[in-house]
Design a binder for these strands. Structure first.
Lengths: 183, 183
DNA sequence: AACTCCATGTAACATGTTACATGATTCG
DNA sequence: CGAATCATGTAACATGTTACATGGAGTT
């Protein structure tokens, strides 16, 4: 029940079309939520029907027109209320860990390969998050940034993304160390 | 497309009824996959129809009869093939990080409270995983256990669960440290 | 007497994924 | 000239969640 809220939170960063939102979800928000463009289009329609976002058409030359969505006051209220609800526990769902669990009847080399790929992806993601962090900080130290008081949330979710990927790197490394030199 | 495989992997630990599987999912498997009992019943039907598990009715006195499911040879093959497929990237979906992202329009105290609750849950889960680890090791060191060669997969997924919760604890602590003494 | 545990299921609904369709523009 | 990007959508399908139903046994 809460892609809605992820969309609203993403729109806090400024108005966007469905297409632009999809990219935003791929960059900053990917860290804690994911969605396909189709989901976004469907949910934006609903959010508009519920008055939580408003849409206006922006005409463009040499480009198809686009519908740009903005948070309404009701949308902000909804977000505020949402933050007061208890968070639901996260449910893990990782393909690769299922494969790992089935290692004894599986193909160890293939699983090792997948972990190698995971490791590399995590390194790339971490590098991307680090770059995003530089942009956010804009030359200031973390303390200076936080002292400004604004946008603490986005900084902390980014921190979450970085720590999460660091953890993935640690774990993949540990698994490979155990599986790779099998003697 | 892969609760199926999580179920098959869970059945590697031995035959089980739908009800028992649900509990198994809550304990050992919860770490990397989750499912409601209803999903399990539905999927077990399908797995049986596809010949990947076989069912037999166990009559019980003073208890309702139960249908106990076992992996078939075809089920094991399916698992083997599954481990060879490339793993799909994990998609994060965390309610609480959405709330954190929306902190500036949200209710900081409520969010802080939620993080406190998360922290506590992670500590409990970690303790549970640690107990499971003791049971698995059965007095041996990690090296001795791994040298035995069997059941390496389950050990590594458990390691994953432990590291994951350790990470959650670190992150929640970091967030609280930044949000709590706001000056 | 009320509650929890065992045990299985149906039905309705919400969410997420995949495939397909369209059509112009810029870039190499 | 072909590929990628901009931009939006429909339809079908797969998965996951919630609510409800049933009924006996053991526990407090």
């Amino acid at each position: 029940m809460s892609l809605r809220h992820a969309v609203l939170a993403a729109l806090l960063e400024g108005e966007a079309s469905g297409y632009e939102l999809a990219k935003r979800f791929d960059l900053s928000v990917a860290n804690f939520w994911s969605a396909t463009p189709q989901q976004l289009y469907r949910d934006l329609e609903r959010l508009e029907a519920d008055g939580l976002v408003s849409a206006r058409v922006v005409e463009q030359q040499r480009r198809p027109n686009k519908r740009v969505f903005t948070l309404t006051a009701a949308g902000r209220d909804e977000l505020h209320t949402f933050t007061q609800e208890p968070a639901r526990p996260v449910a893990m769902r990782d393909d690769l860990l299922v494969k790992l669990q089935a290692l004894d009847v599986g193909d160890p080399e293939a699983v090792i390969k997948s972990f190698g790929a995971r490791l590399e992806r995590s390194r790339e993601k971490l590098a991307r998050y680090d770059r995003l962090r530089e942009v956010l900080l804009a030359g200031r130290t973390e303390d200076e940034y936080l002292a400004a008081g604004d946008r603490v949330g986005p900084y902390l979710t980014l921190l979450g993304g970085r720590m999460y990927e660091q953890q993935n790197i640690r774990y993949a490394t540990a698994v490979l160390n155990i599986l790779l030199p099998p003697r």
